[in-house]
Structures are given as C-alpha cells and as structure tokens.
Design a protein around this nucleic acid. Structure first.
Lengths: 188, 188
DNA sequence: GATTAAAGTCAACATACGTTGACTAGTCGT
DNA sequence: ACGACTAGTCAACGTATGTTGACTTTAATC
C-alpha cells in the first residue's frame, strides 16, 4: 500500500540521513565529516548514504541549501533596519532547523563549492533585500559591508566561539551591531 | 666548515618547507593541505617534511604562529583609532610575510587547534591593546565586537572572495569599517 | 683520497576514505 | 503461501593520507 500521504520506511531513513548529515557537516565541515560518521549518527550502514543520495557531494548539495527568509525591510521602521536585520540573523542562526547556514560557513573556508554557495546566498538574498532600501547607489558595497559584519559575528560567536562574543547577551549584540548595520545600510 | 653566520644546506631546505607550508596551508586549510602537496611545492621528498619537522601537526604549529604587531593605540589621535586599526589590519593581511593569519583563518573553521590559536591571538594581542584605550569597562565585549568586524572583513575579502568586498578600494574600506571600529572601541 | 656524517631518495606500511556489488531479510500484492 | 520488490547488510575495491626505515648520494673532515 503505497500512499503519497503516509511516509514510507525509506522516507524516514532519508530524513534521518539528512538530519544526521546536517549535524555532522555543521560540526566538522565538509571535508572533515565522513560518510561513515553520518551513517553512524543515523544508525544505518554507510552504503545506504550512497544508495539514497548517490555520493557525498550530492548529499552535501542537498543539505547546504537554505533560505535566509529576509523580511521586507521597506515595511518596518526605517530607523530600525539594522536592529531588525541583526535580530533576524541571530534567530535564523540559532534555529536548528536551518543548520544549513552553519554547514556552509564551516565548510566555505576550505571548500570552494560551499564558498560559491555562500556567494550565491549573498547575491540572491542579501543584496536584493538591501538594494530595496537606501537607494541603489553602491548597493553592492553596502551589502558587502553588512555581510562582513554579520558573517564575522557568526564566525566569532558560533564557529570560533570567542568567549566574550559567546557570552554577550542577545540584546547587547542587537544594540551594538545593529547600529553598525544601520549605518552600512543607510549610508551614514 | 660549519659556520653560524652562513646558512647550511639544511637551513635552506627548512626555509623552503616553511614557505611552501605557509602557501599551501593558507590556500587549502590544515586538513586539506597534504604533506605531499607541501613537499611538491618545495621540490623535495615528502619524507623530508617529516624528517625536518617530525609531523604534519608540528609543521602546522610552526607555521601557524604570527604577530599582529598592533601599534600603541594610545600614542596617536584618539579619534582615529578605528581608522588606524583597519589600515594596520589590511596591511598585515596583505603582507605575504605574515601568511600565518590566512593559515589560521582558513583552518580555524574545521580545526580546533587552529581555532584555539586564533582565540589566543585575540586574548593575547587584541584584547590587551584595546583595553588600554576607552577604559577597561567591558573591554572584552568591545574587543569581541572589533574582532567580529575585522575577521568578518578578512573572511569576505580574502577567503570567500565576495565580489563587492574584493572590489572595494582600500581607502573606502578604511573609511567605512574604520568608523565602526572607532565606535566599538570608544563605545559611542 | 679515505672515512664519516649529513642530506636526500625510494618503496612500503598502516590506516581511513568514498564507493561498489553481491548477498540477505523483510514487506507487500495476489 | 508464494513471488516480487524494497530495504538493509557485509565485505571488499581502489585510492590517498601520514609516517617509517632502509638505502644511496653528497659533502665535510682528517
């Protein structure tokens, strides 16, 4: 009885593999994460990973996609764009559902495919959202500056685990970094 | 004729290995760089790398040390601390002599030893230099924010190679990011 | 020039990786 | 109950890695 509604056994296995892959890729990066690691975490045979996804590369491509879900910055208070962005960014990062971001950042430093994916996220999501506010003049530069601050924050807080940055309360970060982002977005 | 002044043959080989290791580690990160890669770049046998440095780990430890050479921030104009820091940081990064920084940043995302080294650079060089200006209150937080912006800048410009950040002229970066650093350092 | 130590070469090791193919167990339709 | 198809297991492959030890070549000392 094959039913489109009910998930089959293989669907559950696929999901387990994807979940395990997200955790392991996010924790160790692409090259350091092994198919055997992922299989062990999903409590299955390594061969199943290949059978279901074809290759480690393909599994990574499947896991390393994510949506920043940036809000419409034109809708809210124009003086709170920075604050809104930082708050949103922290939420996205700390929501385990979107482990794709951690996967990308960890891997991008030594994996060109991951680096390209991150550039795509920038060009396809960050840049368009910021181009809508603050005028189109030098939008790319402004988006680049915003990205440098936000990615640097993620790097220090979640990857390097720099103690003072880890310890900082969420609202302090939103206050301090939000002002920076606001200036980058509105250009003064 | 063994002379302390004159460099022996082995000294030149050691230097060639160190130089090759810096390039390869900086380009690929610790795990992705192989002893055979380094040996090939230095035009020697892979076994020599081990003979001279004992292990890949030891060679990495030798190469992954570097000095930010931060200037005395109290000496100059108090309103130009941000500008000074960014300018200095860009110079250090782009001076090939200090490839140790690229080595660390590339490797830190997936190598705990490199991450720890970066945290040590923060605690031993960045934090003390910033604690001397702007008062000691919340010095760690301010240093953390400064690091997040500067490391994010390096990440986007030199590792991810985000096109707008790569294309930005040096002086534009110093202007825009300098203001941010200045605010983080002096706290408003 | 013979002797001795250093510098460099070569092949191999043990291990770990991604991936494959043959095989077994389980499940569903009839 | 039986056959067919799916899901899962197992052992092995080829390759790449860090590292080692035996060997050969080069250079320095007497």
């Amino acid at each position: 009885m094959k039913n489109a509604e009910h998930q089959t056994k293989s669907d559950r296995t696929r999901a387990a593999i994807v979940a395990a892959a997200q955790e392991v890729f996010a924790a160790k990066g692409y090259e350091q994460a092994t198919v055997r690691d992922i299989a062990a975490r999903a409590a299955i045979d390594p061969a199943m990973v290949i059978r279901y996804f074809g290759s480690k590369d393909a599994l990574f491509a499947r896991v390393a996609v994510f949506d920043l879900k940036l809000p419409d910055l034109k809708a809210g208070d124009g003086n709170r764009i920075g604050e809104t962005l930082v708050r949103h960014f922290l939420s996205v990062w700390e929501t385990d559902a979107n482990g794709g971001f951690a996967v990308l950042l960890r891997s991008a430093a030594s994996n060109e495919f991951a680096a390209k994916k991150l550039r795509d996220v920038f060009a396809g999501q960050v840049l368009p959202a910021l181009a809508r506010v603050g005028g189109t003049a030098r939008a790319a530069e402004r988006a680049g500056l915003v990205s440098s601050q936000l990615l640097g924050l993620a790097l220090c807080r979640y990857v390097l685990k720099l103690p003072p940055v880890v310890a900082m309360p969420r609202e302090s970060i939103i206050g301090a970094v939000g002002k920076t982002i606001q200036r980058y977005v509105t250009g003064r």
